[in-house]
Design a protein around this nucleic acid. Structure first.
Lengths: 357, 357
DNA sequence: CCGGTTTGCTAAACCGGTTTTGTGCACCGG
DNA sequence: CCGGTGCACAAAACCGGTTTAGCAAACCGG
């Protein structure tokens, strides 16, 4: 009465073709070990029955999944709202496809990254924005899964790909300072871990760069001038609203992501402020659309796609050779790209450097 | 001499705890079938050994992967370059995470979607832009994998989610026509299948809408005015270059994706043309950044995220209940959003309707 | 005190393949 | 004519778990 199992199994093919399971397996995986006509006969029977080897069973015996995971400490639904991630995924996908690997996105399941990890069937993972402060990393290594960290070089014995965050931020800060701005605000990206600002995280590295640049002109960027939020347009809008609500009136905004910068511009526009006439805005990432927004966004360029590609390449070198090759640590360049969203500080806000504190 | 197998297996835990494999399995999956203290003891041993059940083995016995696939007929690296896809993925991810499912992206492996499918371990797939002209669909159904089609309602016995492409395109066309434009060009999205223009595809539906709108004012949009390319910024640039190279000088461009529209604007800008003064541009999708580009993009809005969500929901209703519930077919609304990239036809190009053919 | 049910666990079968080992037969040189 | 080698396939073990069937001891009402 039960319709039995839906899809044909290897045993069905074997019976139908009058051979053993072994023969069927051979027909698919090493046909040269069979007499040619036997092999073809088996295959005929197989696809006449509509048989394809069950991928899970195959994974189990071969001990590999031909899949790499992309691990994010935040929900995919928030991650994907940042255009940066799309471009990054593009790079990851490019390298993965090139090597015949599939892509599996892993994000916290019911709030737990750890439990999501245990469900995931991957040969290795690219973890973005995950520092060693995350206990998950330890769990992954215990599971013996190769891992490459993106945007955090925390673990020396695992591969990593990052960019020169400090240098990029410093360049952006120095440029803004050179335009005469002394009253600035910083828009930081939400730390992945809700538990405090990760000292090794992207946010802090970039902040360090900004601060270094302004320290050089004798200006200190206080914590009250740094507001963090999700790296999205809405996040940028909310951040600017918060800044204005707190009474600050900066003449320049340093955003750690282009999406936030664009949101900031929208919010400023709503406040009837001109960019860059009243307020300058500089982003970070240089997403594809950065040159196309109004005004064209001055931002720190980072090679987003290459970041994804390099991460996968680094991962695959350790995945594909059994032995743990010495982990690669790669740091990619950043550079400031000046477009139209930045300009000199407005005259009435000009102050002598010594004026301020 | 061999370091044996890396990660501990269930048998190791069983031996160490002095119980049977069954007991260990129970300790994890149905602890109530064990004496409380036995269960806790087993778990202690387990995580002291660093044991977690092997996900692949678990999949095999439970006959489910808790993963859904997103199937695209094009390489992920090209798909992800379209901001639309990021937003779509956001919706997919949201619904998937909500139900505890992981996400697996499936794209052609070595050029073959079919072989990529056989490798994929998923409980169901959301196929975007895949019509029944793709033989893969047949293969998937034979494998007994539930499927929901996005942007093509071709198969009545599978769920589908689409938007009112024709209506949206018609609205866009009618609006452009109402501004006096009679000389237009269309930027179509590359048909997923290299094998000719899929008559059921998105491109043709939208084209149908545009043509209907212009037919109403007595203008026929000839095939020479339709150029297709990848749905990306670069695709839009290339398409406009091709149009200009062919000698056409349209006063309005109807793009089937915002990314192409933005690329088109860039190319037009390079040609020293003003938007919308010389040429009007209208997109399709209404991506997040559409209001922020220069000039703000007039476009046809479609609920991108909801499309992803609905697709997953429709898929899960059939995945989660054994029996094949009657497939859902959902069609979402589109609407024209007028912003700044469109305007009246320039005076020197104004022509009486009767003038043209 | 006895037959029957419940409790707590184990042995064995199973999921659907791959891989190792084994076997019958043809072939082949000595 | 005979032992050795190679070929084509089969039998059985295995991958790492879950699930079913089963069994001994404890419990329980009469």
């Amino acid at each position: 009465m039960e319709p039995r199992t839906q899809r044909p199994r290897i045993a069905d093919v074997a019976r139908e073709a009058g051979v053993s399971k072994t023969a069927v397996s051979f027909a698919f995986n090493s046909p040269d070990r069979l007499a040619p006509e036997t092999a073809t006969r088996i295959r005929e029977v197989a696809d006449q029955l509509g048989y394809t080897p069950h991928p899970v069973a195959r994974m189990l015996t071969q001990r590999q999944t031909m899949t790499i995971g992309v691990l994010t400490p935040q929900a995919l639904s928030v991650i994907f709202s940042n255009p940066f991630f799309g471009a990054f995924s593009e790079g990851v996908a490019l390298a993965a496809e090139e090597h015949g690997y599939g892509l599996h996105f892993i994000s916290p399941l019911h709030g737990s990254l750890a439990s999501a990890m245990t469900r995931a069937t991957v040969d290795g993972v690219v973890a973005v924005g995950l520092s060693d402060s995350h206990p998950e990393v330890e769990q992954i290594r215990r599971a013996g899964i190769p891992i490459v960290l993106v945007d955090s070089s925390a673990l020396p014995d695992h591969g990593s790909v990052e960019v020169d965050d400090i240098g990029g931020a410093q360049a952006a800060g120095a440029y803004i300072a050179s335009l005469g701005h002394r009253d600035v605000a910083v828009l930081g990206v939400e730390p992945p871990a809700p538990g405090g600002p990760d000292p090794e995280g992207v946010t802090n590295r970039r902040l360090h760069g900004y601060r270094a640049a302004f320290a050089a002109v004798g200006v200190e960027i206080g914590d009250e001038r740094v507001v963090v939020g999700p790296a999205s347009i809405d996040g940028g809008i909310a951040a600017v609203e918060q800044i204005w609500a707190s009474g600050l009136r900066p003449t320049a905004i340093l955003a750690m992501s282009d999406a936030m910068a664009i949101g900031a511009m929208r919010a400023l526009h709503q406040l009837r402020l001109d960019i860059p006439g009243d307020v300058s805005v500089v982003g970070f990432d240089d997403i594809d659309l950065a040159p196309h927004v109004d005004p064209p966004l001055t931002t720190v360029h980072q090679p987003i796609r290459r970041k994804g590609e390099e991460a996968v390449r680094a991962l695959l070198t350790v995945v594909e050779r059994r032995g743990p090759a010495k982990p690669e640590h790669r740091r990619l360049e950043t550079r400031l790209i000046v477009r139209g969203s930045t300009g000199p500080v407005p005259p009435h806000r000009r102050e002598v450097a010594a004026d301020r504190r």
